[in-house]
Design a protein around this nucleic acid. Structure first.
Length: 789
RNA sequence: GCCGGAGUGGCGGAAUGGCAGACGCGUCGGACUUAAAAUCCGAUGGAUUCAAAACCCGUGAGAGUUCGAGUCUCUCCUCCGGCACCA
């Protein structure tokens, strides 16, 4: 016959237009239906446009959302823009184009691309972190942190380029500690910063992981990141001046008798005041040198251990012996107390240090868990120490010296000090500036807008100054999933009842790179809001899975510099969005890593084209009855695809549909339109465009309604099982033959055994042996355990 | 070094402890075509064999548990991801 050709671009363009303001993808507040909240990490709308990695994650979430809708659920599947960030600001520095303008353009571009892919987002709930109506609430939440004492200021070293005179983000610093733009060595500069006290939630962030369904690798990574370790503080008095005390942290208090030296970090408060006259110059030089080193260099394992003696001794609280104090950069200032006791016999790093400087090594006999307990008891009695818990997790540096972020709603008053902006004055909007370059002394570009900075103090009306730091771009993404529940609310960040209906998120899909930052930060914010009774659940995400990584065709990570980036739009131009969606799902399992393969894209295109053609055969022959073998395969496929979607096994779901097509093509003259339409329905969540076209245009149904609100087909159990099954026959566990029996017969041992014995091949293998045992797995297999006669 | 994850055909991958290699790609052969592309049909883990049947070997290596191991246990190797002088 003459087939109507499959023209994906025409079909997709048509439906894309019609779906623009579809409402079947809108979630309903307080519906009687069961809700399902499917969340994807909202994108940063970069100038480069959508990435194939986005497409993969979003397609999986879209399939699930469509599947749940067809199963009668009220699905919330929202989208928004994480639009503050460094690239837009750097672009503005380079071109002078306001970040708001370029961001708006990029959002328009992303929107088109997402719609082109047929994602069934609820566009009525779109959020944008740079919208003052949105960041008003980001600022508001900050004020709540401030009021509870969880937002505070501290002097924190930042990356500083002395040549450009700007502060730098970590990602602007190359691995050899240079500014990526100008190539100059980056140093550290201490600046006043706002901090959020995430450490106050460290225990709960660990403990509550047991209440959520995150994959084990995610849980482990978060636990290791928080890095809880139990140990003890031990205090050593300085010999020359017992008022000075050096406190160390150790997890091995039992090794205290083996202490032969003490090491303090170059950043330690006593590092400059402790040394004797004789040693002070050497110590100063050493500290200057080590502070020039980057963290990466300091913590490089291959680096030689260096240090310098202070000329001072402390007194061991264990036996009163004198212990020399050294300064060395292998001890970090920001972990524990910035000081450690050197026990070279029981710690590798201490041993290397001791060997380098020829310090004594003393072994401790009585070590272990009990010894630790005894030692801590002994120390607490003497008042020289106590048990404690420390964390690797540090408080969150929450300010940036940047323009393109949420202004921190604080006023600094010469009389009143730090004054929070009254809530009714929110949002504090970003002012227009002439230049986006940070100032020479490392302040945000906002600092030079005097008419914005100078405001009367909200408390005493004295002229005061606004905080000019902005928030990091993790701020807006820490609570966006809450806003989706009630995105238009002007009185509160979201209505509690609506939150109670939609929360928690049932499935959160995103990239592994956000496991320890965004995911942890947003859990922290959520718990804080929970404590204020503003959100209904202690955890935001009931289930989290990280998607894997798509590599370039050359097997390397996609990167501009390798020239191996696949642009999803190019793929769509060639084969259409349905093929792109299906291909990415088919590539491999949810969290795997695989290279792009053009030829395999072709294979998926062929599949859709064959579906298209076969539809015409089936409509053309218009039979009422479907061949039994096709019915069986159809119902097996409905079952398999439904189960696979629930288990996030999209690759095998697609494979199952391909298998069905292979069977169906063998019997194309004996498939009813009705049965075929069931197959098109299960294809619909995966390939929404071609399914809709087949449904509405190719007369599979009299209905003109969209296929995407139809019920997911039910499979018939009586159609799942084949009439006859092939049972493998094993001898001593080795497959020797198979027999074919009916479904009922396959469940009966006596019949299967006698049929097996009838088989020629089996008789040959059994001759000359004694059957010692028969293992029978009903419906599955028979195994004769034999010995030679 | 530590913590995760993974090693299966030429490639991506599939397999509740039960017929290893589903599905797709590629390759080979054939049909159609003046020809090519596209499409369709068939074959496709390896060894052995003129060929077929049959048999043998095969899931990183080695042991173990089991009637039976890609799957479970132990030891080792390799790769990927994350963290790392964290006391």
């Amino acid at each position: 016959m003459n087939y109507l050709p499959y023209k994906p671009l025409e079909i997709e363009q048509k439906w894309q237009q019609k779906w623009k303001d579809n409402i079947f993808s809108h979630a309903v507040d307080f519906s009687d239906k069961e809700k399902k909240y499917i969340l994807i990490e909202f994108p940063y709308p970069s100038g480069a446009g959508l990435h194939v990695g986005h497409v993969w994650g979003y397609t999986m979430a879209d399939v699930i959302s469509r599947f749940y809708r067809m199963n009668g659920k009220n699905v919330l599947f929202p989208i928004g823009w994480d639009a503050f960030g460094l690239p837009a600001e750097n672009y503005a520095i380079k071109t002078g184009i306001h970040p708001r303008i370029s961001t708006q353009e990029n959002i328009g571009n992303f929107t088109n691309q997402l719609q082109r892919l047929g994602f069934s987002f609820d566009w009525s709930r779109e959020v944008n972190t740079t919208d003052p109506d949105y960041y008003k609430w980001t600022q508001w939440i900050f004020l709540q942190f401030y009021k509870k004492g969880l937002a505070y200021q501290d002097e924190i070293p930042i990356n500083w380029c002395p040549f450009c005179k700007t502060g730098l983000a970590d990602e602007e610093v190359t691995s050899d500690n240079r500014h990526e733009r100008c190539g100059n060595i980056v140093s550290k500069k201490k600046l006043r910063q706002w901090m959020l006290k995430i450490t106050a939630y460290a225990d709960r962030l660990i403990d509550d992981l047991s209440t959520v369904d995150y994959s084990d690798d995610i849980k482990n990574q978060q636990i290791n990141w928080i890095g809880k370790s139990e140990g003890a503080y031990i205090r050593f008095g300085v010999q020359s001046n017992p008022a000075d005390v050096i406190e160390v942290f150790t997890t091995r208090a039992d090794t205290l008798p083996g202490v032969t030296f003490l090491v303090i970090a170059p950043e330690h408060p006593l590092a400059l005041s402790l040394p004797t006259k004789e040693y002070i110059d050497a110590v100063k030089d050493y500290i200057d040198d080590s502070l020039d080193l980057s963290d990466i260099e300091r913590t490089d394992v291959s680096k030689k251990k260096t240090g310098v003696f202070t000329g001072r001794y402390v007194v061991s609280p264990y036996d009163g012996s004198l212990v020399p104090v050294w300064v060395a950069d292998y001890v970090l200032g920001n972990y524990g107390t910035g000081a450690v006791m050197g026990v070279p016999a029981h710690d590798d790093r201490d041993r290397v240090f001791a060997e380098t400087y020829e310090l004594p090594i003393v072994e401790v006999k009585d070590i272990g868990f009990d010894a630790i307990t005894k030692m801590i008891e002994y120390l607490s009695e003497k008042g020289c120490g106590e048990s404690t818990v420390v964390y690797k997790l540090r408080d969150w540096v929450f300010s940036r010296q940047r323009y393109w972020g949420e202004p921190i709603p604080i006023v600094h008053c010469p009389k009143c000090g730090v004054v929070p902006v009254p809530e009714e004055q929110l949002p504090i909007k970003l002012p227009e500036v002439d230049t986006y370059q940070p100032t020479d002394d490392g302040l945000s570009p906002l600092a030079s807008i005097r008419e914005w900075v100078e405001v009367p103090c909200p408390q005493c009306q004295t002229m005061a100054e606004r905080e000019t730091n902005t928030m990091p771009n993790w701020a807006g993404s820490s609570w966006y999933y809450l806003r989706y529940a009630d995105s238009q609310n002007t009185n509160e960040f979201a209505n509690f009842d609506k939150l109670s209906y939609f929360l928690p998120v049932d499935l959160y899909i995103g990239g592994a790179e956000h496991t320890t930052l965004h995911l942890l930060y947003s859990r922290f914010w959520h718990k804080f809001l929970f404590d204020l009774h503003l959100v209904p659940t202690p955890e935001p995400y009931a289930k989290r899975r990280n998607r894997g990584l798509i590599l370039g065709p050359d097997g390397r990570k996609m990167s501009k510099s390798f020239g191996n980036v696949i642009n999803p739009l190019d793929v769509i131009e060639q084969v259409g969005a349905d093929t792109l969606r299906l291909y990415e799902l088919f590539m491999g399992p949810f969290n795997g890593t695989f290279p792009w393969n053009y030829d395999s894209v072709r294979g998926v295109y062929r599949f859709l084209e064959r579906v298209w053609k076969l539809t015409q055969d089936i409509v053309d022959s218009s039979v009422d009855q479907t061949e039994r073998s096709v019915i069986i395969k159809l119902h097996q496929t409905i079952k398999k695809v439904g189960e696979d979607i629930g288990a996030l096994k999209f690759n095998t779901a697609v494979a199952a549909m391909m298998e069905f097509l292979n069977v169906a093509e063998q019997h194309k003259k004996s498939i009813s339109i009705l049965d075929w339409s069931l197959f098109i329905r299960i294809l619909a969540p995966f390939a929404p465009f071609i399914s809709e076209e087949i449904w509405q245009v190719m007369h599979l149904s009299d209905s003109v309604g969209t296929i995407h609100i139809l019920e997911w087909p039910k499979y018939d159990d009586s159609c799942i099982n084949e009439d006859h099954v092939e049972i493998p026959v094993q001898i001593n566990g080795k497959m020797r033959s198979t027999i074919i029996v009916s479904q009922e017969e396959s469940m009966r041992e006596d019949i299967v055994v006698s049929r097996a014995n009838e088989s020629e091949a089996i008789q040959r293998f059994l001759s000359g042996t004694n059957v010692k045992k028969v293992i029978f797995v009903p419906g599955r297999l028979i195994n004769f355990v034999v010995t030679l006669e």
